[in-house]
Structure formats: C-alpha cells, structure tokens
Design a protein around this nucleic acid. Structure first.
Lengths: 265, 265
DNA sequence: CGGTAGATTGAGAGTCCTCAAGCTCTGTGG
DNA sequence: CCACAGAGCTTGAGGACTCTCAATCTACCG
C-alpha cells in the first residue's frame, strides 16, 4: 500500500527532485525564474533597479513563518523557490488557506496596503525569498512606473486567484473542490516550469488541502481517495500526476484561461 | 408581519432616503465622496488629471450589468453611488458573490490585468459610475506615480475583502456567516457615510446574501430570522439596524480594523 | 384582480463533520 | 537491530448542519 499513500515525506522526495537552486542568486540577471517562459522580460535598467531595491535573500524552512498573522506591515517578498500559502484564522483556531504561493509570486502587498489586515504566510516546503523593504514601494512607483504597473498586475492576479477559491469554497461540493484544487495547482505549477514528466512535486498534505477547500480533514481524505480510485489522479512519492485531466476539468467546471506572461518583481 | 419582512421594495425606500446625488457631478472637485471623511485628499493637479482621464459618467439601473461575466477587459469604473457586487458563476448556474461594492470602490482592475478572468459586476441598486478607458492606466502610472500607488492600494484592499469572505465561506457556520455579513457591510457603509440614525439603507435581498455566503436561500432565511428573533439586528423598510452589535461581533469573531482613509480615483 | 418578486415554513434527504481507532513510514535512542 | 514516538493517511459510525422540494403568504403592479 505504500504507493497508495499521500505525502509520505514529500519534503525529502521533492528536495531530491527539485531542479531549482535553493537560494536566490546574487544577481537578478542570473535568476532562474526569469529564464523561464512564464515570465515577462524586463529592461536591463529595470532589472538593475529591482536588484538595488532588494534588501536581502532569505531561506525559511518548511513549516516556517514568512509573515506572522498578527503582525501586519513588515517586509515584502518575492517567492523564488518552494511552496507557501497565505491564510487567515478564527480565534478558535479554525484556519482557512486563502491561496497557495508558487515561485514568482509576490508576497506582502495586502498587508502593506490594506488596513492592518491580518493574514499570515507560511512556508510549505523550504523556500527561498527575495526581500524588499516596506517603504521601497514609493520609490518603485516613482522611478519605474512600469514596475508599479506590474505590481498592480500581480495584485490583481492574486485577487483573481482568491476569487476562484471563493467560488470553490462557496459553491462547489467536496468532489468538485478537490478536482478544482488538483487541476488548478497543476496548471499553475506547469506555468512556472515545475511540471516534469507529466507530474509535479506536490508538497501539500491533506490538512493543507482541507484548509484550502473549507473541508474537514476526514472528508478531504475520503474525497481524494475516491477520485484516485476513479483513476483521475495519482499522488505518489510526493509527486502529483493528473491521470485523467479531462475528467477533472469536467468535474471541477474548470476553465483554462489564456495566460499572459507574468511580471516578476 | 410587514415589519418583519426583508427587502420589501428596498429600491424605492432607499431611493427616498438616499442623500447622495444619483449622478456623479461634472467636475471631480464637486464630488460628494471626496468631501467625506473616509477618503484621502488629493492634490489639485492629481484631481484634474483624474477628471481628464475620466471618460464619461454612467447610470445603470438596479439589476443591470456593469461588467458582463464573459467579457473580460473593457472599461474601468469608480462607483460613485449605489450598491453593486462582483460575482462568478459555474456553468450550471450556481453563483458566488465575491464582494459587494460600495461608493468609492474601483471596478475592473481584476478583469484588466488578470488573464481574462471571468467575473461579472452587477448593480444592486441603481448606480452612478465614473468611467475610465482601459488603456488610460499606463498614463496614470507614468504621469502620477502616487495615483498608481493608490490604485495598487485599492487592489490590495479589494483583495483583503475577498480574503475575509473566503474565510467566512470556508470556515464559518451559517449563523456566523450571516452575523459577519451584517456587521461587515454595516461597518463598510458607515465608513463611506451611509449610516444615518444608526441604520443604513440595505438593498440586498436574501438571495444576494445567500450567494455571498455560499448558503442556500432557505437556510439563509432561517438563519436571518433566528438572529432577528434573538434581537441582534433588524431589517425594516429596507434599512438595516444592528440592534446588538457586540453580540454580532462576538458571534462572527469580527475584528474592527484601524481604518486608513481610502484613496479615491 | 391576477401575476410576480421576495419572504417564510415544514419535512425529508444528503452531504459533511466529529469522534475514535488503526495503520504505515520515518527517525531516534538504546 | 529493535522498540517507540510522531506525523500523516485511512476507515467506520453516528450525528449535525444544510440542502432541496413544495407550499403559503404578503406587498406591489398593471
């Protein structure tokens, strides 16, 4: 039954397979992400400006806190490698994962602007981050309007992801929710070049999935299992493979969007 | 029982009471909203720029479509008066309201940037809107970085509202959801000056509430009724009054945030 | 006065949740 | 090399929360 289990030491496995360097390179020109198809090219001067703006490079271990839920403000990050998630929780401990963050995602805009909105960011795997000072934004908008535009682009995209997750939590049933999560994460990962051999390193455990979908752990387990037995997907050795993507798309009522290249700050 | 009903011709009632002009004034200097406490002041030149950018002023009737769900891109708006909502739906008709829009909210950023994200915007009451051309954004960012910054602020705030709604739909039970919606909308309305005499014109019907909370119409009705019988709130003649706000806050596990003044584009 | 929109209510059926154990795999210490 | 503990996955059972179906009722409109 070992091949039937989910997430058994996904960390280790994915670390073995993960092709990305675990630290963000010293110079942005060498950034692995920028060489990927998924990201829009920037001018040399913009790149230099971003690098100058960058305040540091950080690694945080799996499960570590990137932004504490109760401390607003603080720093801004670009996720360079690894998976993370944004979440909010109620005072009795119930937790809702708002969105998963993949390489290239910008972190901290909400806390920066919104009125002390309390939402935390936690690392799923070990992550590598580029750090920016909180007050560097004004400069960015002033000196490189295009980058400001890009930042708004990123904010709007992040919101549209949360929109989708809200539709999922509010109006899809358990089966549809799980199917949606699988196909949606797969597509996002694919976009940033994480898919290899028709599969992607999948570091989430069932509690993550439950918290993202607004389901209980037990029911998430039973639903995942049902979908797997139907031959729709497979999670093995910490990697996700969509065995029958069309069926997943149909169940989830998922729409593939035309994807523009994302800006990268 | 008439005083027990909800939303009986809310439109008419709110039209009688609503103090705002039903059309956005010709010049932004005369904008009612800007005179309110809730919004941040801007420089004269910025104001002039915004007015120049403005492409028109529109009114749309209650129930009318501001942005069609299937047509991305298009125009940008600032909601000047009235209530609206953003929504997404599944192909079988299930609908999720993502967020309600109140005066001062900026509309269309998501569709502008995100990859053809399909989400519609519909008027709840008759609404007055300022219209901006879709390609005017680049100019805005280039010529007035501060306004670009404000736009990102608005995008981030809108997202944090959706975050909150996702927490609600995903992790609160029906009673908590309804309490949350009532207190949250009341506070937002209060912020833009819509509260008078301890009550606010409340144009939503129970279907709106159900679609926003991810509940069925029937269960929404029963939950609302229970809260009313407990003396927590009152919806009468199309106006909402929080009879026991502290209890609502406790039930919903709601946190009042320190509110900065919002920018207004 | 019939027709429509919206609010209410009751009843029965389901989906999803909680509780309670097991099970597997991994890492650790003796 | 084995026992033990911990994290994460599975399963079964009973119950709670929500949903769907079906009517009824009120207010308002032409």
């Amino acid at each position: 039954m070992s091949k039937d289990t989910i997430g058994s030491s996904p960390m280790v496995t994915s670390a073995l397979i993960e092709p990305e360097p675990s630290v963000c390179p010293r110079h942005c020109v060498d950034c692995h992400l920028r060489q990927s198809d998924g990201f829009a090219p920037v001018s040399a001067s913009e790149l230099a400006f971003v690098e100058a703006l960058r305040n540091g490079r950080v690694r945080i271990k799996a499960g570590g806190e990137i932004i504490a839920e109760q401390k607003p403000g603080g720093k801004l990050f670009t996720l360079y490698a690894g998976w993370a998630f944004r979440y909010k929780s109620l005072s009795d401990g119930r937790r809702q994962i708002l969105n998963f963050l993949l390489p290239g995602d910008f972190i901290g805009l909400q806390g920066q602007f919104a009125d002390g909105a309390t939402h935390g960011v936690e690392a799923v795997t070990e992550v590598a981050l580029c750090v920016f000072a909180r007050d560097s934004l004004r400069d960015l908008f002033r000196e490189y309007p295009n980058l400001g535009y890009d930042l708004t682009w990123l904010a709007a995209r992040e919101e549209s992801l949360v929109d989708e997750n809200l539709l999922t939590a509010g109006r899809r049933n358990a089966t549809e929710r799980v199917a949606m999560l699988l196909i949606h994460l797969y597509r996002r990962a694919q976009r940033v070049g994480l898919v290899q051999d028709d599969s992607v390193a999948f570091p989430l455990n069932q509690q993550h999935i439950a918290d993202a979908l607004g389901l209980s752990l037990v029911h998430t387990n039973k639903t995942l299992r049902r979908l797997r037995k139907l031959g729709l997907h497979q999670i093995e050795d910490g990697r996700l493979r969509l065995v029958n993507p069309k069926a997943l798309v149909r169940i989830a009522d998922y729409y593939d969007r035309p994807l523009r290249r994302a800006p990268l700050i």
